[in-house]
């Protein structure tokens, strides 16, 4: 019994220590003067992290929009309310599905790649040798990747929404025959710029920070062996997925749950 309590205590201390290390890590990487060179490193990372995730995010957005329209139509048509399809698809996407699903896809596509890349640099002593050359890897390797993630995911989320709404249009209007004017008209009437689009973007910014932070820290902090890299990559996906879903609940409660 005592042993179990000590064990739990030790786990708690370890967790606290890891959170502390991760915070110092974040602070040290983000506090740096921007430079022209840093900008070009950042652009390269936006390409690796953002542009290369575009395909998976957009294709998923299209399918999710189509499925939403299909499911929504079969329910709404029972009430004779299929004219509200545009409203349903757009609100579901903007408020929930686009930020959450894009973040989950981003964690799997870009987050795991970030962890593995930085982890392998650590395992092959590239980070150490960079330190010995007198260049801080937190500035040169970590910071551009963090900023690239912070910027890319909100943009990907917007793309996800746009494509999803269009997918809903394809299924709802082109296939199932909802009146085009009511699909767009209802959407325009019910979607608020700040309440829906704005809150969705705020969510995706929060998710972007959390997912990128977890991914990069897991890579930087891992045990530099092949087993360590595989475990850290798994942890990136698991932790960021859980963090995204948990935070989504909190954010939804604050934004739409009447708590504020």
């Amino acid at each position: 019994m005592i042993e179990r309590i000590t064990h739990m205590g030790r786990r708690g201390c370890d967790l606290l220590e890891a959170v502390g290390r991760a915070s110092i890590f974040l602070g040290q990487s983000m506090l740096g003067r921007p430079s022209a060179e840093g900008f070009s490193l950042w652009v390269a990372q936006v390409y690796a992290v953002g542009v290369l995730s575009l395909a998976i995010v957009l294709v998923s957005g299209l399918f999710i929009g189509m499925v939403l329209a299909l499911q929504g139509y079969t329910i709404l048509v029972g009430f004779g309310a299929e004219d509200a399809l545009g409203q349903m698809v757009s609100l579901a996407l903007l408020r929930e599905l686009a930020p959450v699903v894009a973040a989950l896809l981003f964690a799997g596509r870009a987050g795991s790649a970030l962890t593995a890349e930085i982890g392998l640099m650590k395992a092959t002593e590239q980070l150490t040798s960079m330190e010995m050359i007198g260049v801080d890897p937190l500035r040169r390797i970590v910071a551009p990747r963090l900023w690239a993630g912070f910027v890319s995911l909100p943009l990907l989320t917007i793309g996800f929404s746009v494509v999803g709404v269009y997918g809903g249009y394809l299924v709802g209007v082109e296939w199932l025959g909802v009146f085009e004017g009511s699909y767009w008209g209802n959407m325009q009437a019910s979607v608020g710029f700040f309440t829906d689009i704005g809150n969705g973007v705020v969510k995706s910014i929060v998710f972007a920070i959390v997912v990128t932070w977890i991914a990069v820290f897991q890579g930087y902090d891992l045990v530099p062996t092949s087993e360590g890299i595989s475990r850290a990559t798994t942890r990136t996906v698991v932790y960021s997925s859980l963090a995204v879903l948990g935070l989504d609940f909190v954010l939804t409660a604050v934004m739409f749950g009447g708590l504020s």
Binding site: E125, T128, I133, V135, D136
Partner: peptide, 23 residues
């Protein structure tokens, strides 16, 4: 300090066993 340490390392070179080239 971290900054001074990196400053000092500019005066040093180190040859790693693995080479540690940037891949």
């Amino acid at each position: 300090s971290r900054k001074d340490l990196f400053q000092m390392r500019r005066r040093m070179g180190m040859l790693f066993q693995s080479g540690a080239l940037f891949s």
